[in-house]
Design a protein around this nucleic acid. Structure first.
Length: 415
DNA sequence: TCTCTCACG
DNA sequence: ACGTACGTGAGAGAC
């Protein structure tokens, strides 16, 4: 059935050879500094207690703070923080982070709730759990990679998920420090693609404006800001760049003025102007989006550069909400999926080269646009260019593909 | 087992 | 008036 469904490349060039790469990575596992995590757990415990007691004092009542249901009742019935409080699909008060952020000016209590949320998430999901998952024989943590879960062609990781280890906050970064090399002879090495999805949309859409920016090697978000705000590159402000960056991300997901305005905290009118300017400056990107939707309407699926397909049964739905969702999938999947194809090809090439050269270094983790290695110190000067080369040339496009690489005594330092 | 929330790219 | 940016996995609470 593979030739008939035009899936020979995806199967023979990507998924099948990837099996051995993934089993080797799962078998290797990664070392964890459990002593550091135990210390950190005690520290978090104290801060969580402090935030929790402060919440009860300000609320004038003790309740289960980790229960969104109880928290909603305290915030919106007892304390009356928002007479127009939104409810979720099931009639509970919404208490998600963005809802709480908007209440922060109304009451001091919100700050402590957010601290409690952040720290308890880190403690229960990572700090206290990872040490329990060390394999008794290897003393390392072994994830599983799923090749047939994500509809776009990405991998997913579970038991434990090592693709969502914290990095965005100061407290979260402490956890990355606990991922360490196997012994003193090794360092941790991380290599990641730079703006891979934007480069792919530039290449697939053949947008001359965006391709030109990448070829010149200029900061793509700044270049976009200069275009949508119609100023010189050196006149781009921090805020302009931040907004342009959001639009660039939004484009990959199938932007709406509503989504962009929520993301940036600007009015819907301003968001619409930004998007209109964007499409005027990058006309082929707009055409790409329209073409992908039209293709899906005619064929019932969209595909990546290698022919990996995602079926979109709702693309012609009469329900506008359902149809809109399918339309955004039609825009996003070929981009996200082509990036997934590319890093999988790079992994296969790196694995093969390591084996042929009998190297002691090992590929350990994949996090969508990043690869993490146990790198033997004596092999660094061989593997650095090898890894970068394989990543850059895995799937040649009409734009340059860039990857960055770092090493260190833990995963955070390697970034 | 479902819901809500939140960790990542 | 409605619902609204893509893809995942996991913990706590509630039932």
């Amino acid at each position: 059935m593979l030739p008939q469904k035009n899936l020979e490349k995806v199967f023979y060039d990507v998924e099948n050879p990837l099996v051995k790469v993934l089993t080797d990575m799962e078998f290797e596992g990664i070392a964890i500094d459990t002593l550091a995590l135990a210390d950190y757990s005690r520290e978090l415990e104290l801060e969580i207690k402090r935030a929790e007691e402060s919440v009860y004092e300000q609320a004038g009542v003790r309740f289960k703070l980790a229960s969104p249901k109880q928290l909603g009742e305290v915030l919106f019935e007892k304390l009356q923080l928002d007479p127009k409080a939104k409810k979720t699909r099931t009639g509970q008060y919404a208490t998600s982070e963005d809802v709480l952020q908007k209440l922060a000016s109304k009451h001091q209590i919100v700050e402590d709730i957010l601290i409690f949320r952040e720290l308890s998430k880190l403690k229960s999901t990572y700090v206290d759990t990872l040490p329990l998952l060390l394999n008794k024989r290897t003393n390392r943590v072994h994830t599983s990679y799923n090749q047939a879960v994500a509809v776009t062609g990405r991998l997913s990781s579970n038991n434990p998920n090592l693709q969502n280890i914290p990095i965005r906050t100061e407290r979260g970064r402490e956890i990355r420090k606990a991922f360490i090399p196997r012994n003193e002879e090794y360092v941790l090495l991380s290599a990641d693609y730079s703006q891979i999805e934007l480069r792919i949309i530039a290449a697939i859409s053949e947008d001359e404006q965006m391709i030109d920016a990448f070829r010149k090697g200029i900061d793509i978000h700044a270049a976009t800001a200069a275009k949508v705000y119609n100023v010189e590159l050196d006149a781009v402000t921090t805020e302009m760049r931040r907004n342009a960056k959001s639009v660039n991300f939004g484009i990959i997901y199938g932007v709406s003025a509503f989504g962009l305005s929520e993301n940036l905290g600007i009015s819907r009118t301003e968001a619409k102007t930004l998007i209109d300017n964007y499409f005027a400056q990058y006309p082929s990107i707009k055409k790409y989006m329209d073409d992908k939707i039209a293709f899906a309407q005619r064929n019932g699926y969209v595909q990546t550069m290698l022919g990996r397909k995602r079926w979109l049964k709702d693309i012609n739905s009469s329900n506008a909400v359902v149809r809109g969702y399918a339309e955004r999938n039609a825009i996003n999947m070929p981009i996200q999926g082509t990036a997934a194809d590319m890093i999988k090809l790079a992994m296969i090439a790196i694995h093969k080269a390591f084996k042929e050269q009998n190297l002691r270094s090992r590929m350990l983790l994949q996090v969508h646009d990043e690869l993490v290695f146990d790198a033997h110190r004596s092999e660094l000067e061989i593997i650095k260019p090898l890894i970068l080369d394989c990543m850059r040339n895995a799937l040649p496009l009409s734009v340059p593909i860039e990857a960055e690489l770092g090493t260190g005594e833990n995963w955070l330092q390697a970034h």
